[in-house]
Design a protein around this nucleic acid. Structure first.
Lengths: 336, 336
DNA sequence: TTGTAAGCGTTATCAT
DNA sequence: ATGATAACGCTTACAA
């Protein structure tokens, strides 16, 4: 199947490519009858606009790039999935790159985006990205920048984030309300604003309840299962009877440690995770967690981008509330 | 930051764009010293090749498209993730579309691919795609077609699939070996080859063991949790004491039904699922399942594509063995 | 309302 | 080894 061009159509009809181009672009400067004839012919010949040529001429592509640490994490794949649907609907093509949590690959991805003349970049930073300098250096002029989840406040553009402070505040408050006395936290790496926020909410809830904040039971580390396990062992040793975890996998590690110590969840030890990964509802006992609403984050990011390219919207920050999903691992009261 | 072109570089250096183009393309028809000077200058000016222009001129893009029903399913996001890494490594840009399990969106995605001049399409079909006609109609000449997981054998190109027959055969055999007597199956929609294969392996194992095949306990339906639950209720009614499920979610529904019936898993009822979703190892009791190796599938698909564009490889079918992961839900023997 | 013509940045084919 | 030139398919002033 060989692709016909607007010139082919024009030749077949004895008119010029300009008219065909205008007609197919929906310009009002074409007689209605001509437009119809052209559209019919185009369909008949199986015409498809050559995006490369069109973009080259126009200088920007109807393309947006999405850069995430890894596609195959539930949170990111959900964000991408919902954003893709909306962008596709609006006529955009989506190109996707993974940073694999490294600065090097993130920069490579930015270069790919630039080479492809994307109209916008939706990005959630790798763990190695400590500030946004590499973004500014590698993003083309006029490209809309939309950061989500992991963002740098000093960069221009749109930001979409969770209300992590309030989320962890609610989670911690709920642990207090369930009668847990010494509540620690697996806080994640506090270099990222994301985790700072979650720690802040945790501290806020403790203070509000008049509970002293003890740095010895605030564990700063990665949020993997293995590290969660290690930290939780220490937490138990130090007399904790509950943990708010900034990730579900570290929370899972905490489960491992608590079980190993022979403690009952939630009777003797309470746990709340973050992300509401699918498995949290399928474990036994089921795990309470903070839902991040990735679908909504993707939708908001995509919409904000579309608004921005249409000039409807200035730089801004969109905050999405988290939702505390109470399950068994933190519900002492219902049990007794 | 304004993007410099090869003409800018040429002007700066008092040479012509042709030479710059050749140098940057690695052509041998450039003096070594000139090449070095050009490369230095290009780097200094922050030059980045305009992919649009290059592709337009060359007629094909170093781009491959991936089309899947939904990005946010673990299986697909894992396939994409591993394929993306390899393709990116080889200098390809990846564009991704979702078919949302509809034929309409799948065709739309194919058109997007065509408009973007992709060099290849990696696709796993939507549930609505009953044959490959729409593929043939919408794919550009010279585009490499790579189908994975859900494939149509009558289409040309490369296919990457699991050895579903052997996988389900092993799963069923393992249930028999554990002493289960009346083993049914939640088979999925038998319109897809994928599910036909799994049924075939199931039947094969029964026949080998001299167990009669009973169509009343072969349930053809979607592989969702809810339908799994419904079918499992009937299976229990009809006297089954085990189920091989062609999906983990339908297996989860079977768990629900079996628990509701007050039966012990695996003591009184055995279950094996398919896909080895993450949650299967976190439930209690943990669920046995057939691992599909999505990473390997993505890797193989990407490699096969690269081999094909380099002319190293003809059309072929790559079969990836499944791996039976035995956990508690089907292990009667260890229990007693 | 339609046509003319130039140009987006790159590469391929000539020629030198 | 390098330069001149045309062309990829499309869009857009400008002209008619």
């Amino acid at each position: 199947m060989i692709k016909p061009t607007i010139t082919d159509i024009a030749n077949e009809m004895g008119i010029t490519p300009s008219t065909v181009s205008r007609a197919l672009a929906g310009s009002p400067r074409v007689k209605e009858s001509t437009r119809e004839a052209i559209e019919r012919k185009a369909k008949e010949m199986g015409y498809e606009r050559n995006v490369m040529a069109s973009n080259l001429r126009k200088g920007v592509a109807k393309t947006v790039g999405i850069i995430v640490p890894r596609i195959n994490r539930q949170f990111f794949s959900n964000v991408i999935s919902s954003a893709e649907s909306i962008l596709e609907e609006a006529g955009y093509t989506v190109i996707i790159c993974q940073s694999h949590e490294t600065l090097e690959d993130e920069i490579k991805a930015l270069k790919t985006m630039r080479a492809n003349q994307v109209a916008g970049v939706l990005i959630s930073h790798s763990i190695q990205s400590l500030n946004g300098d590499h973004i500014l250096e590698n993003i083309h002029d006029g490209v809309e920048l939309v950061q989500f989840d992991r963002v740098f406040d000093n960069l221009p553009g749109i930001k979409v984030v969770n209300d992590g402070v309030n989320g962890s505040y609610e989670a911690t408050k709920s642990l207090i309300a369930n009668g847990y006395k010494k509540i620690g936290t697996l806080a994640g790496y506090l270099g990222a604003q994301l985790f700072k926020d979650r720690k802040e909410g945790y501290v806020m809830a403790l203070k509000e309840a008049g509970i002293p904040v003890d740095e010895d039971i605030i564990f700063e580390d990665s949020i993997l299962r293995a590290t969660g396990y290690q930290s939780a062992l220490k937490a138990i040793e130090r007399g904790c009877d509950a943990l708010y975890c900034a990730g579900d996998f570290s929370a899972l590690g905490a489960f491992d440690a608590v079980r190993e110590a022979g403690l009952d969840v939630p009777g003797q030890f309470g746990i709340i995770g973050t992300a509401n990964e699918h498995f949290t509802g399928l474990m036994s006992p089921t795990m309470s967690s903070l839902e991040q609403r990735p679908d909504r984050m993707g939708t908001e990011a995509a919409r904000a981008f579309l608004d921005a390219v249409e000039g409807k919207q200035e730089d801004r920050k969109i905050v999405i509330p988290m939702e505390l999903i109470i399950r068994q691992s933190s519900s002492r009261k219902q049990q007794q």
